[in-house]
Design a protein around this nucleic acid. Structure first.
Length: 438
RNA sequence: GGAGAGGUGCCAGAGUGGUCGAAUGGGUCUCACUGCUAAUGAGUUGACCUGGGAAACCGGGUCCGAGGGUUCAAAUCCCUCCCUCUCCGCCA
C-alpha cells in the first residue's frame, strides 16, 4: 500500500511513476478526489463528536447537582446532534473505505533503477552463469553444449525412471498436480534439506501454516486484486498460500520492532498453491506449471537503509544454490511492465532446461520497500531519531523445487539413461550417486 | 463439537454507565542522593487520524480482542465473530 500522502503531495509525480506499470491517471485523480472528500467529512464528524462529548460532560455535572431539568434539555439537544452525526459518520466511513480500497489496488512505485518496459520482452538479461563458462555479463548467451541424451524432456525421463507419475497424480487431483515417486521423491526432500541447511548460517528456519486468513493475504498484496489466483476454502474462510512469503510477511504483523533486531532473516519450506487461472495450455507440460509445488523461501525485514544490501544478499544466496547444483541460469532485471504488483524491483533467476529448450523461472528476488509493511502494519523504532517507521520487506525463492527437479534430471541425464545426482545432494540421498534405470 | 473462564497500556493487574487513555505495581528513560554497584526519592513513558505551526509544540477525534447495537454518555449493558485457557468428546 502506498502512503496516501504521496497522492496529496505529489500527484503528478505519482501519475508518472505508475504510468510505467499501466495505471491510468484518471484512477489517481479519482483517488485524490475521494481523499479530499473523506477528509472533509471526517473533520466535520469529529467536530460534532467533540460537541456531543462536551455536552455529555455538562449533563453529568448537572445531574450530579440534581438539576434534572437543565440536564434533560441538554439531552434533547445532544440527541438531535446525534442524528446529524450518525449520517455524517456513515458518509465518512463510506468514503474512508472507498479510499482504502482504491489504495489497496494501486501497485508499488517501481525503483528508479527498474528498467522501463511494457512486457516480459523488455526484461533485461543482466548476466548468466554455467558450470562450463562461469559468470558472464550481458545479454548475449552462448549456451553450453548439451549432448543429445540430455535433450529429453523431464516428463519422459521421469516416467522412464519411475520417479515422476503425472498420470496417477491427475487421477488423484487433476492435471498440473505432480507426484514424485521413489528416488524422485527423495530428490525433492534432499533439495529441501540442502537449501534449508545452506541458509542456516543466518536465517531462522520457520515452518508456517499453509492455510491463512484473508488479512494475511491482503498484507502481501495477493488480495484484493488477485483473488482469482488463489485457492480458497470457503467454508472456513481460509486461503491456501501461493508462497511462504505470505505467512512469513505477516509474522510480525502489527508489531513495532527494535532497530537492533533488524535485519531479521527468515527461511521456510512450504508447499505453494496456485490456481494459474488464465494460463491454461501455456507451457504446462510436465512440471513447467503446477497448481502445487514445493519451495524454500528466504525473507527479510530490514530498515530502509539496509534494504539494498539485503536485496543483493538474497540474490546471491539464490544464485549460490544454483551454482552449487551446477545448473546453467541467467539473471533478469524485471522491467516496470512485468514487475509484480507489490515490488519495487525484482530479479528473476531462470534455469536452462536442456530437455525443453526453455529458460524456467526458478527464483524471484524482490524488494518491496514499505509497501507490504504498510499493509501488514510492521514498524520499527529508529534508534537514532526514536521515531516509529515502517520496515522494508524483501524476499526470494531459494529455490522452487519442481522446476529445479526438472532441470536436474535433464542436465544430469547420462548416456545410459540414468541420472547422476549432483554431489551436494548426495549426503541427503543416502550417498547414492545416481538414479538408476532399472 | 459440548460445558465453563477469560482477552485492558511495554509487562502484571484494577476498574460493571459520566470526574477513565484508564488506579496500582513492575519495567523504561531523566534528575537527585551515594566513593562504585545496589538501594532510595522525584519525575517521565502509547498508537493512529486530523487541523494549526518552520519547528518545539498546541487543539480536536479514535483506540480497553474485532465488528455492530442500546444511551445525552460505553472499558463497563446487549448481539455476532475471533482468539486464549480448563474440563469433556473426537483425533494424527
Amino acid at each position: 500500500m502506498l502512503d496516501i500522502r504521496i497522492v496529496r503531495d505529489d500527484l503528478d509525480g505519482l501519475k508518472q511513476a505508475l504510468a510505467t506499470r499501466g495505471v491510468e491517471a484518471a484512477v489517481l485523480d479519482e483517488l485524490w478526489e475521494t481523499d479530499q472528500r473523506a477528509r472533509a467529512a471526517s473533520t466535520k464528524r469529529d467536530e460534532l463528536r467533540a460537541e456531543i462529548n462536551s455536552i455529555s460532560k455538562e449533563i453529568a455535572q448537572l445531574m450530579r447537582l440534581g438539576d434534572t431539568e437543565s440536564g434533560n434539555a441538554l439531552r434533547e439537544k445532544s440527541r438531535s446532534i446525534g442524528e446529524e452525526l450518525s449520517e455524517l459518520e456513515s458518509k465518512a466511513s463510506e468514503l474512508e473505505v472507498e479510499r482504502r480500497d482504491a489504495l489497496l489496488k494501486l501497485p508499488n512505485i517501481p525503483s528508479t533503477e527498474t528498467p522501463l518496459g511494457s512486457s516480459e520482452a523488455d526484461n533485461v538479461v543482466v548476466r548468466w552463469w554455467s558450470p562450463q563458462w562461469g559468470m558472464q555479463n550481458g545479454p548475449d548467451i552462448d549456451l553450453p553444449e548439451y549432448a543429445d541424451y540430455q535433450k529429453k524432456p523431464h516428463w519422459e525421463i521421469g516416467s522412464e525412471l519411475k520417479i515422476l507419475d503425472l498420470e496417477r497424480a491427475a487421477k488423484i487431483s487433476g492435471s498440473m498436480f505432480p507426484m514424485f515417486r521413489g528416488l524422485g521423491a527423495t530428490l525433492e526432500r534432499a533439495l529441501t534439506s540442502f537449501a534449508l541447511d545452506a541458509h542456516s548460517d543466518a536465517f531462522e528456519e520457520i515452518r508456517p501454516p499453509t492455510l491463512v486468513r484473508t488479512a494475511t493475504m491482503v498484507s502481501t498484496g495477493h488480495l484484493p486484486k488477485f483473488e482469482e489466483d488463489a485457492y480458497r476454502l470457503e467454508r472456513d474462510d481460509l486461503y491456501a498460500i501461493p508462497t511462504a512469503e505470505v505467512p512469513l510477511t505477516s509474522l510480525a504483523k502489527d508489531e513495532i520492532l527494535l532497530e537492533e533486531d533488524l535485519p531479521m532473516r527468515l527461511t521456510a519450506f512450504t508447499a505453494c498453491f496456485r490456481r494459474e487461472a488464465g494460463s491454461a495450455g501455456r507451457d504446462t507440460r510436465g512440471l513447467l506449471r503446477l497448481h502445487e509445488f514445493d519451495k524454500v523461501e528466504i525473507l527479510s525485514y530490514t530498515t530502509p537503509a539496509q534494504a539494498q544490501d539485503m536485496h543483493a544478499e538474497l540474490l546471491s544466496r539464490a544464485e549460490g544454490l544454483l551454482q552449487r547444483l551446477g545448473l546453467t541460469y541467467r539473471l533478469l532485471d524485471l522491467c516496470t511492465g512485468d514487475l509484480g504488483n507489490s515490488s519495487k524491483r525484482t530479479f528473476d533467476l531462470e534455469a536452462y532446461s536442456p530437455g525443453t529448450g526453455l529458460w524456467l523461472e526458478v527464483s524471484s528476488v524482490s524488494w518491496f520497500g514499505d509497501y507490504q509493511a504498510r499493509r501488514a502494519n510492521i514498524r520499527y523504532r529508529n534508534a537514532e531519531t526514536n521515531q516509529i517507521e515502517f520496515i522494508h520487506t524483501l524476499n526470494g525463492s531459494a529455490l522452487a523445487w519442481a522446476r529445479i527437479w526438472a532441470v536436474i534430471v535433464e542436465t544430469y541425464r547420462q548416456g545410459d539413461g540414468s541420472v547422476m545426482i549432483p554431489e551436494v545432494l548426495r549426503p541427503y540421498m543416502r550417498n547414492l550417486d545416481r538414479i538408476p534405470i532399472d
